[in-house]
Structure formats: C-alpha cells, structure tokens
Amino acid sequence: MSRPVLEVRDLKKIYGTGEATVHALRGVSLTVQRGDYAAIMGSSGSGKSTLMNILGALDIPSSGTYHLDGVDVSRLSDAQLALARNRLIGFIFQSFNLIPRTSAVANVELPLAYAGVKPKERRRRAMAALDVVGLADRAGHEPNQLSGGQQQRVAVARALVTEPALLLADEPTGNLDSKSTDDVLQVFDDLSTAGRTIVIITHEDEVGARAKRLIRLVDGSIVSDVRQSPLDRPPVGAAAAAAAMARNHGRAAVYSGGRHSQ
C-alpha cells in the first residue's frame, strides 16, 4: 500500500483552562488508506465533530501530529492551510453550507476559482461533478430552489470537483429525510466504487453500516475500529447494508460488552 491519505497520531484537543477544561479528544490515533470508506460514529459530545474539524484543517489540535497525504498539516502556514483545504480536502457539511443566492454550478465552481482554474475549464469540471451526483439538469438553480437532498448533492459535487485526496463528510445526512439520505449515500457508494477516499461522520447506524470501515468514538477516544468490507472492493451498498444492520443488531451484545477488535 502507498502512503496513507490520512494519518493522525495521539491527537488531543483541550478546550478551556483550569476547572472548565474539556478534553474533547484524548489521544486519537488513526490511519486511513487510499480508497477506504470509513465512518466515524459516536454520540453527541464524543468528540467526533472536533476530530472532523481537525481532519478538515479547519481547527488545530492541542497536541499530536496530523499528516494529510504525506503533508504535516500542523506545520502549515495560514496560506498553505488554505491551499491544503482547497487541494487535498473536499468538505461536506451537515447544513450543506452552499453560498446563498448563487447558482448550483457557481457553488461547485467556487473551489476551482480559488484554485485558479480558468473559467471555461472550471465550468466543464463543475458540470462533470454535477453530473456525477445526478444534478446536471439543476445547474442553474439557486440553493433555495433545491430540496435538501439536492443541496447536499450539490455540496458533494463541490467537495469532489477539485479531485481531493480525501472527502470529509460531517453528518451529511443529518438534515435529510430517508429518501434524500438514500440518494446521498448512493452517491458516496458510487464515489467509493470509483476509488475515492471518504471519511464520514455520523450517528446513524444505517449510514455507518454502508461504510467499509466503522470507527466508534466515545468520550474522545476510539473504542472500536471494524473492517466491514475489504478495502479494495466496492462498498457493500444499500442491500448489503440492510443485511449488515441486521447482523450488527444481532451482535449488539458484543458492542455493549466493550471493545471490538478489527
């Protein structure tokens, strides 16, 4: 295997000082290989959002190292960080975070604009990305003219348009109904099949079940890390996920029993 896309060692994040100190992350170590599709699950307050922000280079850890595609992110300057966010990471947010009053295709073009791609080339790649998420016919629509699921698919298109090394999704289906959730997850399955590296944060079992790898976070530490399907194969998909869900429920006793090795 080539160098990992993502490698964190003993990551800690501490908020506040003195008695108000909160240990959001208590030494997380994690390696994600190219082509992997990992889901990080945890309840509210488990530190998964903090981890996500650090992985997305939006926040800096209190201690620990973070290598993204071989680059030590903690040593980057502000301008280099902007470049890393632009080139190496595609970020997908729970609340979509599309720029309002701006057409879908313009939203998708935005990272390319910051990367300095020429307008014509930009338009072509943005349309291609919208095509991947099945929204090429909605290119001219503004966010408020799109449904939640469609907005999130535009956001996915925006995340993958720069061909980043890593797609990071923070609760991508948290604000969506089940139909839209299926649409978006199908897009993730397709992307994973196409060889993309995806890290997704969720608290929905249904979402976690479709990933190739399931990481559980409790109180700022990783408590389990399960390989659900082989790294070099397409993800199991919706049907298999349903089956996996049933199996997981059957093994609920194992989970509640404590740690679960890979």
Binding site: L58, A82, R85, N86, R87, I99, P100, L110, Y114, A115
Partner: peptide, 15 residues
C-alpha cells in the same frame, strides 16, 4: 458563515 464556507473551500486570506 459565508466567509467560513469560502475559507473551508480553500479561499486564501488575501482573496
């Protein structure tokens, strides 16, 4: 928020 989004998408400070 919009500034945050732009920054997350890789907008440099200068832009």
């Amino acid at each position: 928020r919009e500034i945050g989004i732009r920054k997350a998408l890789g907008a440099p400070r200068r832009v």
